[in-house]
Each structure stands twice: as C-alpha cells, then as structure tokens.
Design a protein around this nucleic acid. Structure first.
Length: 428
RNA sequence: GGAGAAGUACCCAAGUUGGCUGAAGGGGCUCCCCUGCUAAGGGAGUAGACGGUUUACCCCGUGCGAGGGUUCGAAUCCCUCCUUCUCCGCCA
C-alpha cells in the first residue's frame, strides 16, 4: 500500500510513475475527493465527540448534586445521533479509501527500465555454459516419463491436469534439491530456516498483496476463510505482521521450503506439458526484513544467493531486470533468473527476486523502532522475497541439461551426497 | 467434536448497583538521591499505537481480545466472532 499522505502531496507525479506499469489507473481519479471527504468527516465527528465528552462530565456532576439534567441530556441525545450518522458516513468513506488503496500497485523504483511488457525487460548478465548435444535434446517430461520418475498420466487420473507424481529416484531427486537448497541458504548464506503453514488466512493474503485483486489466482478452502498459500512469501512475510521490531532485530533473513498452490486461472493452454506450470509445486523461498536504507543492497545479495544455487548445479542462466510494464503488483524492483532449457531452446523463469520496499510492510503493518528511547514513530521495514529456487522447474532444468544420448540423466555433483552417492538416473 | 474458564498497558494484576478509574496495586524499565564500588535503601517518571491538526510542542479523537448493540455516557450491560487454558472424546 502506498502512503496516503505522500500520495496526497505528490498526486500527479505518483500517478505518472504508476502509469508506466500500464495497468488501469482510473481508480486513482477518485482519490483526492475521497481523501478530502474523509478528513472533513473526521473533523466534524471529532468536534462533536469532544463536546460529548465534556458534557458527560457535566451530567455526572449534576446527577451527583441531584440537579436536573434533562435539558442537556436531551441535547446530547441529538448530538449522539449526529455522531452516529457522521461515523457511519466516515466508515463507508474509509472503506472506500481502503479498497482504493489496496488496489493501487507499488511505485516502480527509479532504476527500473520503463517498458510495456516482458519484451522490454533488460538482460543484466548471462552466466554459465549451455550444454551441447550430439543428439536432439528431449523435453523433460519425455525424459522423466521414459525413466519412470515422473508420472503425469496417473496424476491426471488421481487429481487432474497440472499435477504430477514423482517416483523412485525422481522423488528422491526432488527431495535432494530441497535439502541442498535449504542447506546452502541456511549454512552458507546466513538464513534462518522456517517451515511455514501451507494454509493462510485472508488477512495474510491481503498483507502481501495477493488479495483483494487476485483472488481468482488462489485456491480457497470451502469451509474456512483460508487459502492454499501460493508462495511461502505469504506466511513468512506475515510472520511479523502487526509487529514492531527492535532495531537490533534487523536485518532478518528467512529461508522457507514449502509446497505452493496456484489456480493458474488465465493460463489455460500455456505450458500444459511438464513441470513448468503445475497447480502444486515445491519452492524454497528467501524472505528479508531490512531497514529502508539497506533494501537495494539486500536485493543484490538476495539475487546472488539464488544465483548461487544455479551456479552450484552447473546450470546456465541469465539475470534480467523486469521493466515497469512487467513488474509484479507489490514489487518496486524485480530481478528474474531464467534458466536455460534446451528443449525450449530458450531461458525460462526459475526465480523472481523482488524488493517490495515498504509496500507490503504498510499493508501488513511491519515496523521497527530505530531508537528504543526515542519518541519518534516506528518506521516501516522494507520486505524482499525471492525464490531460491522453484524446485520443480529446477528438476526440469536438470533433466534437460544433464540428459545423455542413452536417455539417462547425470546427477549434478553437489546433489550426489543427497542421492546416496548415485551419479546417474538410468532406465531400468 | 462435547463441557467449562479466561482475555485490562512491557509483565503480573485490581476493577459488574454504567459517570471523580483512560484505568488502582506490584514487578520491570528510565532518571535522581544515598553509598568508595556493588548490593540494599529513598524519591520521581512510565500507555504503546493509530488518526486529525501542527515546522514542532500543545491540543483533540479512538483505545481495557475484535466487531456490533443499548445509553446523554460502557472496561463495566447485551449480541456475534477470535484466541488461550483445563477436562472428555477422536486422531497423524
């Protein structure tokens, strides 16, 4: 959420910057009017309340002295009615303002390239060697199915499309990847390990920005107002919701493995085969809470941590900066990591690292106190999150990049300790 | 799932004939005095937060788990919800 005061004072400028995202900004047109109306109502109602408080004392006095207070009680009855009416208008205006503010995306950082859509994202760097094949490389779902480690057909029978069974060494490899990533981040990158709930409530989904605008993208539990978490960013960022942290607590860095669920509404027909776009997938997520002045430096670190996973796995990738038009709703700046997938003959997203600045912190009310003895107001932290990495897509990348002419797949060196020393997955 | 109890400020904890309690008392914390230092002792201070207004201070409003209601006025009365605890049942 943007700061209402800042928006009021820099309305035209901020509107201009927001428009580079390309979305519909017409909701903002109503802002000055609603904002003004709200403050006016507050003043009116508070003046009356101050008077009511005063007169209440008077009434108490008179009652105590056994004097007659009927006249002022009658007057106060009218004041009470007015207050009630004004409070009601105020409530509806505040609700309107809230709804409006929740539907306005974050302001892009000034370093973000202005652009219309993903075609205008800017490549920062390419890292690693792409494999060369003496044969036609196969897509990962063919490799995995042939090896008997992925079973899409039975998943479709048991559940539906966009689900998969991992089996045998495939299941083992998925588990190895999760452990490898978590160990790397926890032991070498300084993150604290977290295993969060997979169901989250509506307030949490609103705190990180999935709601209210993108409800159709999430799976909703029927009986409760719970959602299947689409990313560990939701539970882990909301872990500190409505808290005031101590200066000494920061920075905080969590790494969380979780299974994620997405409805993929609107993605019908895209990536229908393979592991790339599943309703359920595993992901290791990195989440930071930092002081505002540190967040951009942290974004670089966070991105490097995610890159490290790819480097150690020996996968070729590139880093791109999302342009304003491709930026996510809550992000001020985002780097995507895209891994090389031979069968696609292109790079595909495998991680997205974002600085949300104080946008989520304001929605979720996550603050910190710079000086415990100062009377100054607490400030909002900056939150960042990034995948480190999407495990299913990593599995796809390994199958494709490490495939051999005979249909087998080599296990990257760093994973072998997690695979009981196995070096290769072969057909039985 | 059934039965019961409770949610007051950093912590503990008073407070149901509604109005000198927006909150007693204790602990903790901060400052001062005393003491060579420490301990002990004495004194003073201590809602935080949000909103309006403001350069800032002051001021005003909200606030006793959350949200409604009754009332001139609610921590105190009524309703709904949430959370925690205890017992029973069930269960990975």
């Amino acid at each position: 959420m943007l700061d209402v005061r800042t928006l009021r004072d820099n309305y035209e400028e901020m509107k201009g910057r927001l428009s580079t995202r390309g979305g519909d900004l017409s909701v903002l047109d109503r802002f000055p009017e609603i904002d003004e109306k709200r403050r006016q109502l507050i003043q009116e109602t508070e003046t009356l309340k101050a008077r009511r408080n005063e007169v209440s004392q008077e009434i108490a006095q008179k009652k105590k002295n056994k004097e007659n207070a009927d006249a002022i009680i009658k007057e106060m009855r009218e004041v009470g009615d007015k207050i009630k009416a004004l409070d009601e208008s105020l409530r509806s205006v505040e609700e309107e303002l809230e709804t409006l503010m929740l539907s306005v995306p974050n302001l892009p950082h000034e370093s973000v390239p202005v652009g219309k859509d993903e075609d205008e994202n800017v490549e920062i760097r390419q890292v690693g060697e792409r494999p060369t094949f003496t044969f036609e490389p196969k897509p990962h779902w063919e490799i995995g199915t042939a090896l008997g480690i992925l079973d899409f057909e039975r998943a479709a029978k048991v559940t539906g499309s966009r689900f998969v069974f991992y089996k045998g060494l495939g299941a083992r490899l998925e588990r190895a990847l999760i452990s490898f990533m978590m160990d790397l981040h926890a032991d070498q990158h300084g993150y604290q390990e977290v295993l969060p709930p997979y169901l989250v409530n509506r307030t949490s989904m609103t705190g990180t920005g999935q709601l209210p605008k993108f409800e159709e993208d999430a799976f909703k539990i029927r009986e409760e107002d719970y959602f299947l978490s689409p990313t560990a960013e939701v539970p882990v960022t909301n872990y500190h919701r409505e808290e005031i942290l101590d200066d000494s607590d920061l920075p905080i860095a969590y790494c969380a493995y979780s299974t994620n669920f997405r409805s993929e509404a609107g993605s019908a027909g895209r990536d229908t085969r393979g592991l790339i776009r599943q309703h359920q997938f595993n992901k290791v997520e990195l989440v930071h809470f930092v002081k505002p002045e540190d967040s951009y430096e942290t974004l670089e670190k966070l991105t490097n941590h995610a890159e490290n996973v790819l480097k150690k796995l020996g996968l070729s990738y590139r880093v791109i900066t999302l342009c304003t038009g491709d930026l996510g709703f809550t992000a001020a700046k985002t780097y995507d990591l895209e891994v090389w997938l031979p069968s696609y003959d292109t790079f595909r997203e495998i991680s997205s690292c974002s600085n949300c600045e104080d946008y989520q912190a304001r929605r979720a009310s996550i603050r910190f106190r710079r000086d415990p003895n100062s009377k100054k107001k607490p400030e909002f932290v900056h939150t960042l999150n990034g995948s480190g990495l999407a495990v299913g897509r990593t599995m796809a990348a390994i199958l494709e990049n490490y495939q051999q002419a005979d249909g087998s797949v080599l296990i990257p060196e760093v994973l072998r300790p997690y695979m009981g020393g196995i070096e290769k997955i072969e057909a039985k």
